[in-house]
Design a protein around this nucleic acid. Structure first.
Length: 289
DNA sequence: ATTTCGTGTCCAGTCCTGAC
DNA sequence: GTCAGGACTGGACACGAAAT
Protein backbone atom coordinates (compact mmCIF):
# COMPACT_ATOMS: atom_id res chain seq x y z
CA UNK A 1 0.00 0.00 0.00
CA UNK A 2 1.47 3.36 -1.04
CA UNK A 3 0.83 6.14 1.49
CA UNK A 4 2.24 9.66 1.52
CA UNK A 5 2.96 9.21 5.23
CA UNK A 6 1.84 12.78 5.92
CA UNK A 7 -0.20 13.87 8.90
CA UNK A 8 -2.84 16.50 8.19
CA UNK A 9 -2.37 20.00 9.62
CA UNK A 10 -4.40 23.14 8.98
CA UNK A 11 -1.75 24.91 6.90
CA UNK A 12 -1.32 21.86 4.65
CA UNK A 13 -5.10 21.48 4.22
CA UNK A 14 -5.41 25.17 3.27
CA UNK A 15 -2.66 24.81 0.68
CA UNK A 16 -4.36 21.72 -0.71
CA UNK A 17 -7.76 23.40 -0.93
CA UNK A 18 -6.32 25.93 -3.39
CA UNK A 19 -5.21 23.19 -5.78
CA UNK A 20 -8.15 20.78 -5.65
CA UNK A 21 -10.72 20.82 -8.42
CA UNK A 22 -14.40 19.88 -8.18
CA UNK A 23 -13.47 16.66 -9.94
CA UNK A 24 -10.88 15.86 -7.25
CA UNK A 25 -13.60 16.26 -4.61
CA UNK A 26 -15.87 13.97 -6.61
CA UNK A 27 -13.19 11.28 -6.81
CA UNK A 28 -12.55 11.53 -3.06
CA UNK A 29 -16.27 11.34 -2.36
CA UNK A 30 -16.65 8.23 -4.51
CA UNK A 31 -13.72 6.55 -2.77
CA UNK A 32 -15.16 7.38 0.65
CA UNK A 33 -18.53 5.89 -0.26
CA UNK A 34 -17.43 2.87 -2.32
CA UNK A 35 -14.12 2.10 -0.57
CA UNK A 36 -11.99 1.02 -3.54
CA UNK A 37 -11.87 1.89 -7.24
CA UNK A 38 -9.28 1.08 -9.92
CA UNK A 39 -7.59 3.56 -12.25
CA UNK A 40 -9.79 2.61 -15.26
CA UNK A 41 -12.94 2.91 -13.11
CA UNK A 42 -11.99 6.38 -11.85
CA UNK A 43 -11.06 7.39 -15.39
CA UNK A 44 -14.50 6.22 -16.57
CA UNK A 45 -16.48 8.28 -14.08
CA UNK A 46 -14.41 11.45 -13.79
CA UNK A 47 -11.93 11.90 -16.64
CA UNK A 48 -11.99 12.17 -20.40
CA UNK A 49 -8.72 10.36 -20.92
CA UNK A 50 -7.03 7.43 -19.23
CA UNK A 51 -3.58 9.00 -19.12
CA UNK A 52 -4.92 12.20 -17.56
CA UNK A 53 -6.59 10.11 -14.86
CA UNK A 54 -3.30 8.32 -14.19
CA UNK A 55 -1.40 11.60 -13.91
CA UNK A 56 -3.91 13.24 -11.60
CA UNK A 57 -4.20 10.18 -9.35
CA UNK A 58 -0.42 10.17 -8.95
CA UNK A 59 -0.63 13.77 -7.81
CA UNK A 60 -3.45 13.00 -5.36
CA UNK A 61 -1.43 10.05 -4.02
CA UNK A 62 1.60 12.27 -3.52
CA UNK A 63 -0.52 14.82 -1.65
CA UNK A 64 -1.74 12.11 0.73
CA UNK A 65 -5.36 12.41 -0.38
CA UNK A 66 -5.58 8.84 -1.64
CA UNK A 67 -3.54 5.68 -1.13
CA UNK A 68 -3.08 2.90 -3.64
CA UNK A 69 -2.07 -0.75 -3.97
CA UNK A 70 -1.77 -3.36 -6.68
CA UNK A 71 -3.09 -6.82 -5.91
CA UNK A 72 -1.28 -9.80 -7.38
CA UNK A 73 -2.78 -11.11 -10.61
CA UNK A 74 -2.21 -14.43 -12.41
CA UNK A 75 -1.81 -12.82 -15.81
CA UNK A 76 -0.35 -9.42 -16.65
CA UNK A 77 -0.26 -6.67 -14.06
CA UNK A 78 -3.28 -5.49 -12.09
CA UNK A 79 -4.36 -1.84 -12.25
CA UNK A 80 -3.71 0.38 -9.26
CA UNK A 81 -6.52 0.15 -6.71
CA UNK A 82 -7.24 3.43 -4.90
CA UNK A 83 -8.67 4.03 -1.43
CA UNK A 84 -9.15 7.33 0.36
CA UNK A 85 -6.26 8.34 2.63
CA UNK A 86 -6.32 10.25 5.92
CA UNK A 87 -5.80 13.70 4.41
CA UNK A 88 -8.43 13.05 1.73
CA UNK A 89 -10.93 12.19 4.45
CA UNK A 90 -10.06 15.41 6.29
CA UNK A 91 -10.55 17.46 3.14
CA UNK A 92 -14.00 15.92 2.58
CA UNK A 93 -14.97 16.42 6.20
CA UNK A 94 -13.96 20.08 6.01
CA UNK A 95 -15.94 20.41 2.81
CA UNK A 96 -19.06 18.81 4.30
CA UNK A 97 -18.72 20.59 7.65
CA UNK A 98 -18.73 17.21 9.40
CA UNK A 99 -16.71 16.06 12.37
CA UNK A 100 -13.08 15.66 11.31
CA UNK A 101 -12.42 12.99 13.93
CA UNK A 102 -15.24 10.86 12.55
CA UNK A 103 -13.62 11.06 9.12
CA UNK A 104 -10.36 9.52 10.30
CA UNK A 105 -9.30 6.83 7.89
CA UNK A 106 -7.64 3.98 9.69
CA UNK A 107 -4.76 2.40 7.84
CA UNK A 108 -5.64 -1.02 9.22
CA UNK A 109 -9.06 -0.69 7.55
CA UNK A 110 -7.39 0.31 4.27
CA UNK A 111 -5.15 -2.73 4.55
CA UNK A 112 -8.22 -4.84 5.27
CA UNK A 113 -9.71 -3.65 1.97
CA UNK A 114 -6.47 -4.46 0.13
CA UNK A 115 -6.19 -7.91 1.64
CA UNK A 116 -9.86 -8.78 1.65
CA UNK A 117 -10.87 -11.99 -0.08
CA UNK A 118 -13.90 -9.99 -1.25
CA UNK A 119 -11.72 -7.40 -3.04
CA UNK A 120 -12.37 -8.84 -6.51
CA UNK A 121 -16.10 -9.01 -5.75
CA UNK A 122 -16.24 -5.43 -4.45
CA UNK A 123 -14.19 -4.04 -7.36
CA UNK A 124 -16.31 -6.00 -9.84
CA UNK A 125 -19.57 -4.65 -8.43
CA UNK A 126 -18.17 -1.10 -8.40
CA UNK A 127 -17.07 -1.59 -12.02
CA UNK A 128 -20.66 -2.42 -12.97
CA UNK A 129 -21.78 1.01 -11.77
CA UNK A 130 -18.79 2.93 -13.19
CA UNK A 131 -19.54 1.32 -16.58
CA UNK A 132 -23.10 2.67 -16.33
CA UNK A 133 -21.79 6.14 -15.48
CA UNK A 134 -19.39 5.95 -18.43
CA UNK A 135 -22.28 4.90 -20.70
CA UNK A 136 -24.37 7.81 -19.42
CA UNK A 137 -21.54 10.28 -20.06
CA UNK A 138 -21.40 9.28 -23.71
CA UNK A 139 -25.04 8.33 -24.21
CA UNK A 140 -26.91 11.64 -24.17
CA UNK A 141 -30.17 11.38 -22.17
CA UNK A 142 -29.14 8.51 -19.90
CA UNK A 143 -28.20 8.92 -16.25
CA UNK A 144 -27.30 6.82 -13.23
CA UNK A 145 -29.41 8.81 -10.81
CA UNK A 146 -28.38 6.91 -7.71
CA UNK A 147 -25.64 4.45 -6.77
CA UNK A 148 -25.64 2.96 -3.27
CA UNK A 149 -22.97 0.68 -1.80
CA UNK A 150 -23.90 -2.60 -0.09
CA UNK A 151 -24.25 -1.00 3.36
CA UNK A 152 -26.54 1.81 2.22
CA UNK A 153 -28.48 -0.66 0.07
CA UNK A 154 -29.30 -2.66 3.19
CA UNK A 155 -31.13 0.42 4.50
CA UNK A 156 -33.00 0.69 1.19
CA UNK A 157 -34.05 -2.95 1.54
CA UNK A 158 -35.42 -2.17 4.99
CA UNK A 159 -37.34 0.78 3.55
CA UNK A 160 -39.14 -1.51 1.10
CA UNK A 161 -40.15 -4.02 3.74
CA UNK A 162 -43.23 -3.59 5.84
CA UNK A 163 -42.90 -6.72 8.03
CA UNK A 164 -40.08 -8.10 10.09
CA UNK A 165 -39.17 -11.62 10.93
CA UNK A 166 -37.91 -12.61 7.50
CA UNK A 167 -34.34 -13.03 6.34
CA UNK A 168 -33.62 -9.93 4.28
CA UNK A 169 -31.47 -10.14 1.14
CA UNK A 170 -28.06 -8.43 1.04
CA UNK A 171 -27.58 -6.97 -2.46
CA UNK A 172 -24.16 -5.76 -3.58
CA UNK A 173 -25.58 -2.39 -4.54
CA UNK A 174 -28.59 -0.39 -5.58
CA UNK A 175 -28.99 1.76 -8.66
CA UNK A 176 -31.50 4.01 -10.37
CA UNK A 177 -31.01 4.14 -14.13
CA UNK A 178 -32.91 6.64 -16.27
CA UNK A 179 -33.15 7.19 -20.01
CA UNK A 180 -35.35 10.06 -21.12
CA UNK A 181 -38.67 9.83 -19.22
CA UNK A 182 -38.23 6.15 -18.32
CA UNK A 183 -36.32 4.80 -15.33
CA UNK A 184 -35.63 1.49 -13.62
CA UNK A 185 -34.56 0.74 -10.04
CA UNK A 186 -32.45 -2.32 -9.37
CA UNK A 187 -30.53 -4.31 -6.78
CA UNK A 188 -27.26 -5.78 -8.02
CA UNK A 189 -26.09 -9.32 -7.30
CA UNK A 190 -22.52 -9.61 -8.60
CA UNK A 191 -21.45 -13.23 -9.03
CA UNK A 192 -17.76 -14.12 -9.41
CA UNK A 193 -18.50 -17.79 -10.01
CA UNK A 194 -17.37 -18.94 -6.57
CA UNK A 195 -20.76 -19.49 -4.91
CA UNK A 196 -22.53 -22.85 -4.97
CA UNK A 197 -26.00 -23.20 -6.48
CA UNK A 198 -27.30 -23.82 -2.96
CA UNK A 199 -25.99 -20.39 -1.89
CA UNK A 200 -27.57 -18.80 -4.96
CA UNK A 201 -30.96 -20.38 -4.34
CA UNK A 202 -30.80 -19.34 -0.68
CA UNK A 203 -30.30 -15.77 -1.88
CA UNK A 204 -33.24 -16.15 -4.24
CA UNK A 205 -35.45 -17.48 -1.42
CA UNK A 206 -34.70 -14.31 0.55
CA UNK A 207 -35.72 -12.16 -2.41
CA UNK A 208 -38.95 -14.16 -2.74
CA UNK A 209 -39.72 -13.65 0.98
CA UNK A 210 -38.74 -10.00 0.70
CA UNK A 211 -41.02 -9.43 -2.30
CA UNK A 212 -43.90 -11.01 -0.41
CA UNK A 213 -43.37 -8.73 2.60
CA UNK A 214 -42.61 -5.54 0.65
CA UNK A 215 -45.06 -2.65 1.04
CA UNK A 216 -44.26 -1.17 -2.36
CA UNK A 217 -42.93 -2.19 -5.75
CA UNK A 218 -39.65 -4.06 -5.45
CA UNK A 219 -36.70 -3.03 -7.65
CA UNK A 220 -35.40 -5.45 -10.27
CA UNK A 221 -32.86 -7.96 -8.99
CA UNK A 222 -30.01 -8.13 -11.50
CA UNK A 223 -27.72 -11.16 -11.33
CA UNK A 224 -24.46 -10.69 -13.24
CA UNK A 225 -22.40 -13.81 -14.02
CA UNK A 226 -18.85 -14.10 -15.38
CA UNK A 227 -19.58 -16.59 -18.20
CA UNK A 228 -22.59 -17.69 -20.35
CA UNK A 229 -22.29 -21.24 -18.98
CA UNK A 230 -22.40 -20.08 -15.38
CA UNK A 231 -25.44 -17.93 -16.20
CA UNK A 232 -27.34 -20.80 -17.87
CA UNK A 233 -26.68 -23.18 -14.98
CA UNK A 234 -27.55 -20.56 -12.37
CA UNK A 235 -30.82 -19.66 -14.12
CA UNK A 236 -31.85 -23.30 -13.89
CA UNK A 237 -31.18 -23.31 -10.15
CA UNK A 238 -32.90 -19.95 -9.54
CA UNK A 239 -36.05 -21.03 -11.42
CA UNK A 240 -36.57 -23.91 -9.00
CA UNK A 241 -36.97 -21.54 -6.03
CA UNK A 242 -40.54 -21.37 -4.72
CA UNK A 243 -42.11 -17.95 -5.28
CA UNK A 244 -39.46 -16.84 -7.79
CA UNK A 245 -42.21 -15.88 -10.26
CA UNK A 246 -43.20 -12.84 -8.21
CA UNK A 247 -39.65 -11.48 -8.03
CA UNK A 248 -38.52 -9.22 -10.91
CA UNK A 249 -35.24 -10.94 -11.76
CA UNK A 250 -33.00 -10.62 -14.80
CA UNK A 251 -29.61 -12.16 -15.49
CA UNK A 252 -26.65 -11.31 -17.69
CA UNK A 253 -23.12 -12.42 -18.30
CA UNK A 254 -20.74 -9.52 -18.79
CA UNK A 255 -17.40 -10.12 -20.39
CA UNK A 256 -14.94 -7.74 -21.97
CA UNK A 257 -16.21 -4.29 -22.91
CA UNK A 258 -19.95 -5.05 -22.84
CA UNK A 259 -21.93 -2.15 -21.41
CA UNK A 260 -24.51 -3.14 -18.77
CA UNK A 261 -27.09 -0.71 -20.16
CA UNK A 262 -27.25 -2.53 -23.52
CA UNK A 263 -29.34 -5.58 -24.52
CA UNK A 264 -27.65 -8.09 -22.22
CA UNK A 265 -30.49 -8.73 -19.73
CA UNK A 266 -32.64 -11.84 -19.79
CA UNK A 267 -35.66 -11.72 -17.44
CA UNK A 268 -36.21 -14.92 -15.46
CA UNK A 269 -39.99 -15.03 -16.06
CA UNK A 270 -40.97 -18.66 -16.76
CA UNK A 271 -42.45 -17.79 -20.16
CA UNK A 272 -39.31 -16.15 -21.44
CA UNK A 273 -36.29 -17.81 -22.95
CA UNK A 274 -32.94 -16.09 -23.23
CA UNK A 275 -34.01 -13.12 -25.35
CA UNK A 276 -32.01 -10.13 -24.18
CA UNK A 277 -33.31 -6.65 -23.49
CA UNK A 278 -31.58 -3.40 -22.59
CA UNK A 279 -31.58 -2.33 -18.94
CA UNK A 280 -34.16 0.40 -19.52
CA UNK A 281 -36.46 -2.08 -21.36
CA UNK A 282 -36.98 -3.98 -18.09
CA UNK A 283 -39.58 -1.33 -17.12
CA UNK A 284 -41.94 -2.80 -19.74
CA UNK A 285 -41.36 -6.46 -18.84
CA UNK A 286 -44.35 -7.91 -16.95
CA UNK A 287 -43.71 -9.81 -13.76
CA UNK A 288 -46.16 -12.52 -12.65
CA UNK A 289 -47.45 -11.76 -9.15
C1' DA B 1 14.13 -16.03 -25.62
C1' DT B 2 10.23 -13.98 -27.47
C1' DT B 3 5.48 -12.73 -27.60
C1' DT B 4 1.28 -11.28 -25.57
C1' DC B 5 -1.63 -8.95 -22.39
C1' DG B 6 -2.88 -5.35 -19.44
C1' DT B 7 -1.25 -1.89 -17.24
C1' DG B 8 1.57 2.52 -15.67
C1' DT B 9 5.04 6.30 -16.84
C1' DC B 10 6.96 9.97 -19.34
C1' DC B 11 6.90 13.85 -22.29
C1' DA B 12 6.06 17.36 -25.85
C1' DG B 13 2.58 20.07 -27.49
C1' DT B 14 -1.92 22.27 -26.84
C1' DC B 15 -5.69 24.37 -24.34
C1' DC B 16 -7.79 27.00 -20.62
C1' DT B 17 -8.03 30.46 -17.12
C1' DG B 18 -6.87 34.19 -14.28
C1' DA B 19 -3.81 38.13 -13.29
C1' DC B 20 -1.64 42.13 -14.99
C1' DG C 1 -3.07 41.39 -25.49
C1' DT C 2 0.45 38.95 -22.97
C1' DC C 3 2.10 35.92 -19.68
C1' DA C 4 2.31 32.13 -16.36
C1' DG C 5 0.59 28.15 -14.29
C1' DG C 6 -2.08 24.26 -14.40
C1' DA C 7 -4.83 20.89 -16.90
C1' DC C 8 -5.35 17.98 -20.83
C1' DT C 9 -4.16 14.94 -24.93
C1' DG C 10 -2.01 11.35 -27.44
C1' DG C 11 1.85 8.66 -28.49
C1' DA C 12 6.01 6.15 -27.30
C1' DC C 13 7.87 3.35 -24.08
C1' DA C 14 8.50 0.33 -19.81
C1' DC C 15 7.05 -3.19 -16.73
C1' DG C 16 5.42 -7.82 -14.67
C1' DA C 17 3.85 -12.20 -15.51
C1' DA C 18 2.09 -16.00 -18.29
C1' DA C 19 2.14 -18.33 -22.66
C1' DT C 20 4.57 -20.03 -26.61
Amino acid sequence: MEHSGRRPDTAHLLRLARHLTDRDHRVLSLLRTHRVLTTPQIAQVAFTSHSRAVQRLRVLTGLGLVARFRPRRDRGSAPWHYVIDTIGAHVLAANDGTDVERSRVRQDRQLAVARSTHLEHRVGANGFFTALIAAARTGGRAELGEWLNATDTAERVDAHCGEWGIGLPHPDGYGHWAEGDRSVEFFLEWDTGTETHRQLTRKMERYADFTGAAVRAVPWVLFVFPTPRRETNARGALRRVEGVGRVPVATAHLSGAQDPNTAVWSPLSPSRGLDRVALIELVSVEVIV
